[in-house]
Design a protein around this nucleic acid. Sequence first.
RNA 1: GGUGGGGUGGCGGAGCGGUUGAACGCGCCGGUCUUGAAAACCGGUAUACCCUUCGGGGUAUCGCGGGUUCGAAUCCCGCCCCCACCGCCA
Length: 468
Amino acid sequence: MIDLKLLRQDPDVFRRGALAKGIDVDVDRLVNLDEQRRALTAERETKRAEQKRLSKEIGPQIGTLQGQLKSAQGPQRDAIQKKIQALQEKPAELKTEIQSVDRTLAEIEPQWKELWLAVPQPPDRDVPAGDSPADNVELRRWHPSWFDPDKSFVDNKGFVPKTHLELVRDLNLVDFERGVKMAGTRSYFLRGDGARLHQAVLRLALDYVVNEHGFTALSAPVIVREEAMVGTGFFPAGRDQAYHIEESKRGAGHDLFLVGTGEVSLMGLHGDEILDADSLPLKYATVSTCFRREAGAAGKDTAGLFRVHQFDKVEQVVICKADEAESRHWHQTMIGIVESFLQRLELPYRLVQCCTGDLGPKNADMIDIECWMPGRTPAPGSAPGSAQAGDWGETHSASRLYDYQCRRLNMRYRDSSGSTVICHSLNNTVAASPRILIPILEMYQNKDGSVTVPEVLRPYMNGQERIG
RNA sequence: GGUGGGGUGGCGGAGCGGUUGAACGCGCCGGUCUUGAAAACCGGUAUACCCUUCGGGGUAUCGCGGGUUCGAAUCCCGCCCCCACCGCCA
């Protein structure tokens, strides 16, 4: 969530930020509620201080009088009781006043909190303006020497490619029909070499960030409480995207939610902690199953492995000191990690700078990495390199969040002067599968219908060189 | 699922309803002593928000929420969580 002090100083930054992201939120109302809340809180505190002061003064007096009351009789007794009553009058008055303020506060605070959580992080100044992914800006491309996406697949490899759908069907790598039978639309079984390839990519990705980049591997909960979803910034905006386990309806204390990304688990780890500054940056990676309802995506990418309800992902996060330069540095570093990962896999990719409208509420900046998918049908209106089939498909996403996420998570460290500072956080996909299997299968297919196993994956496939 | 026991500061652990943000111990930081270290001794050690003439002042927080009371860590109600044992179990 945003820093309310900044909001008070310059609400326009947040008005413009929400507008740029196309998020409808009443910033002015938040400013107003915040003012009201602060005024009421100040009033309450003053009255409360007076009440406490009176209490200390009156308490012993009442005690003494009550002691006298025991031995007193007749008119003396009445006089003492009147004294006690008189003493109690003023604090009782204050009590009523405080209760009245409390009632107003109790009305305002939930609205205030809800709006506060809903105000998005303004896009960073160097993020290009735009309404939709169509306005995203390509930054750079890479491709292996043996495949240039600017040329047609036929020109590159000398035969007409199959789509990944055809490949997995012909090679019996995925069983969609039974997946759907068992779990509904967007469900699937990976089988045989399909399942092995999936595990191979994930393991390669995890080993890579852990062994070569010093990330700490974690196996983490993927079923989490609401706080973790709110804390990481996926709720309330993305509530519809999450599977909700209504444990409370069965008598349990809390409902649970399935995470849509390992980011939730990795970032939730140190929630409500004051971290040792010397331990920063924290670099964590996890391989986890991700669950997404894909609400609002009905009819979109319905076929194949591109958009599914359940997948596995190696995710990396960095939690660092609150320093813009450092944040930017780690963003670039994480992107570099993914680039070299894709280069080892020899998959053509491009970096795309997401525009303001494509950022989502929590990000200040986001860079997507898209792999070339020869079997992908170009989105209507988009113009890839040439008029051939095939298109770029998003496989990775690298976000820079400043302290927006860590403020929600209440994750801080102590600086050299001893005061607490909210951390910065970043996250990036290392590999999400089975989506990444699409470019692998399509790029590595052979004329005879078989698929060559990328060299870097062979150690994870018992040395196997071909599928089919 | 059954039965019992608990939730207090970084940790352990006290706490007749009234200067208790909270004894004491440990840890941590600073100092004295020491050639250095240890030990010993002395001092300091929560977070958030608000106000400030920048000295400081105030409020909240003892699992969470509500209630009783002039006043609640302490009493009452509801909820959550944890631990132990038994049962079941990858």
